[in-house]
Design a protein around this nucleic acid. Structure first.
Length: 586
RNA sequence: GCGCCCAUAGCUCAACCGGAUAGAGCAACGCCCUUCUAAGGCGUAGGUUGUAGGUUCGAAUCCUACUGGGCGCACCA
């Protein structure tokens, strides 16, 4: 309808242009907006205001000329000039109500594909280190990333979801070492557990699984393990030197294969836990990408070669540097240390190159707000590799602060209370988690109140929306009790009977779904859909309360049930894009 | 010190990328259940959009400075 009106305006402007009222060189961009106030009709345009200056006419006078030149349309009831020169369009009930038939016919397909594109977009999100279970801090990124990807797909953009597994680097070594030390403890070796090692209970479980599979094959004496190891921090030493020395000792005593047993046991166990966790959260990926593979497959070397060829590498003090300042970064970055090891950033560059080489037109990174400092260097790397930096997109997700009523829940790992995503989900449920996390704009700090998320009343938006869905289902059940059936055709052919204010509002709301979906998708703003669903549920509850559906007048009854069913369909479509279920009964 | 993000009703948040009288929910107050789920609905009240300038027909939105909050500034991951 918006497009239809824009076409009408365009035709009118052509007419005016031919008549010499506006200059032929004037190329206006026609904007048709949804009105905020019903008294302003259904749609409005500011075109007369925008053209007033070049046409050298006052806006209201110009608006009248445009209206006079508008082609006749059966969809329009009337037009009005308002305020400084807006043109308001009033659409007929019949043309608005036609949306109901489209929804009923297209079902879950309704509203999809409006931003259809051949541009493949990759969305990488969560990508938490596989050194422990997902934290609640990861929850918002998971919910946001999953919804953005689903929205893009719904809008018609080919999407791939990917998780970058940081299976290389020091943290993974500390993890493997932690497991080995717990393993030794369980076999009776009197280890003093390092202050900087991973202490979670899951480490014990992994250690147990290793000893179940390998008995005491990897047992070593305390003396073998601790010989010449520098002191830990509590003993007045350096905790980093201590744990790193233990890692080297583990590798030396166990040989590569033995060490790999602990390394892989830890990685596999934690990764499968993360997978399960995300899966239960309604989040799935097409690919889990190994950081380690970037080294073994030569991607890192290849990326550094490209930078070298393009002239952006230099050596200083034995280190190899990337001249990121050439692209506006604050400082240059080391990519290979004097000891020959490439840095984490070198992997990032290689990963970026790898993504583009896999044929993605756009790569979207979703990061926590604490990573904003990386944007400049990644953009720099993108350009230095020879790719258009516009193809690399970053969305930052601000932190969510958890509250239990008034009480703020501390998120420090040390406190140990309520830190994993799984615990959050167990307490408030998947649906409420998913919905709450995306109901705020991503770059807004948000407060997540657990008590509210668990409340089963209208105070809680997720129950409020799900209840609207369940209510429609309930009407269908009641219908059967009256020995009536829903006659869809009769409903569709009597949509003109839907003429109360509540019905008109609800129908108008339904007609907005496609543009809300599209807008939310292309702007990566799922909160727009969340808000829309709240408003749609609100419209439906108001309607439900004011107009009874199970009435003797069969034409009106069928029309109302058809409207309700269309509402149910949209609620279902929208909720599923946010990873929320649509229950038939509460 | 430098940089990024944020600031809207008492609280939690919107506002279709510059449009008309800035909107919802919660909290407060007043109503509606022998009627399809009251897990709901209707109404009232609530604002100098952090401050001060600027840009223009028009600003919560764009620009500048300031104030306050979050985060970052590794040869860590």
């Amino acid at each position: 309808m918006k497009q239809h009106i824009a076409d009408l305006i365009s035709a009118a402007l052509n007419t005016l242009s031919e008549n010499g009222i506006i200059g032929a060189d004037v190329q206006p961009s026609i904007m048709v907006e949804n009105t905020r106030d019903k008294s302003h009709g259904d749609f409005a345009t500011n075109i007369a205001l925008a053209l007033a200056k070049p046409a050298r006419r006052n806006p209201r006078e110009l608006a009248q000329l445009i209206i006079d030149a508008l082609p006749v349309s059966a969809n329009l009831e009337k037009t009005e000039i308002a305020g400084p020169g807006f043109i308001n369009f009033f659409v007929t009930q019949a043309s608005t109500a036609a949306v109901i038939g489209q929804i009923i016919e297209q079902k879950e397909q309704f509203g999809r594909g409006l931003a259809s594109s051949a541009e493949r977009t990759q969305v990488e999100f969560v990508s938490a280190n596989p050194t422990g279970p997902l934290h609640v801090g990861h929850g918002r990124g998971a919910a946001y990333g999953a919804s953005v990807a689903d929205l893009l797909e719904a809008a018609g953009v080919p999407v791939e979801r990917e998780y970058y597994v940081n299976d290389a680097g020091r943290q993974m070594n500390i993890l493997a070492t932690s497991v080995w030390l717990r393993y030794l403890e369980q076999l009776g070796v009197a280890i003093t557990f390092p202050s900087n090692a991973y202490k979670g209970h899951y480490i014990q479980d992994i250690a147990t699984s290793v000893s179940n599979a390998h008995a005491d094959t990897f047992k070593r004496t305390l003396d073998e393990v601790m010989l010449d190891i520098p002191a830990d921090e509590p003993q007045g030493g350096d905790k980093d030197a201590h744990i790193d020395a233990l890692t080297e000792r583990a590798q030396a005593l166990l040989t590569e294969e033995g060490y790999a047993v602990f390394f892989n046991a830890a990685l596999d166990s934690i990764l499968s836990d993360i997978r399960d966790d995300l899966s239960s959260f309604g989040v799935s990926y097409q690919k889990w990408f190994s950081e380690l593979s970037l080294t073994t497959d030569g991607d890192v070397e290849s990326a550094l070669n490209t930078l070298e060829e393009n002239g952006y590498l230099f050596e200083e003090e034995g280190n190899l540097w990337f001249r990121s300042t050439a692209f506006g970064d604050d400082k240059d970055r080391v990519v290979r240390r004097a000891n020959g090891l490439t840095t984490y950033f070198a992997s990032d560059i290689a990963y970026l190159k790898n993504k583009f080489e896999r044929g993605f037109d756009k790569v979207l990174y979703i990061w926590g707000a604490d990573h904003h400092g990386y944007i400049a260097r990644m953009k720099a790397a993108c350009q230095a590799l020879g790719y258009d930096p516009e193809r690399l997109l970053v969305r930052l997700v601000q932190f969510a602060i958890l509250y239990r009523g008034e009480e703020r829940i501390q998120m420090s790992t040390r406190s140990g209370s309520f830190v994993t995503l799984r615990e959050l989900r167990d307490e408030v449920g998947k649906d409420a988690c998913r919905f709450f996390y995306v109901s705020r704009k991503a770059d807004q700090h948000m407060d997540f109140d657990l008590e509210l998320a668990k409340t089963q009343s209208k105070d809680n938006p997720i129950y409020y929306i799900q209840y609207a869905h369940a209510r429609v289902c309930s009407v269908h059940r009641k219908l059967a009790e009256h020995d009536w059936t829903w006659n869809q055709d009769a409903g569709l052919s009597h949509l003109n009977r839907l003429d109360t204010e509540y019905e008109k509002d609800l129908i108008t709301r339904l007609s907005k779904y496609p543009e809300v979906l599209t807008h939310a998708a292309v702007n990566y703003e799922p909160h727009l859909l969340a808000n829309y669903l709240k408003e749609l549920a609100n419209d439906f509850h108001s309607y439900y309360n004011a107009n009874k559906m199970l009435i003797d007048d069969s034409d009106l009854r069928n029309a109302r049930i058809t409207l309700s069913e269309a509402t149910r369909q949209i609620l279902n479509n929208g909720l599923s894009l946010l990873g929320v279920d649509s229950p038939e009964q509460m």
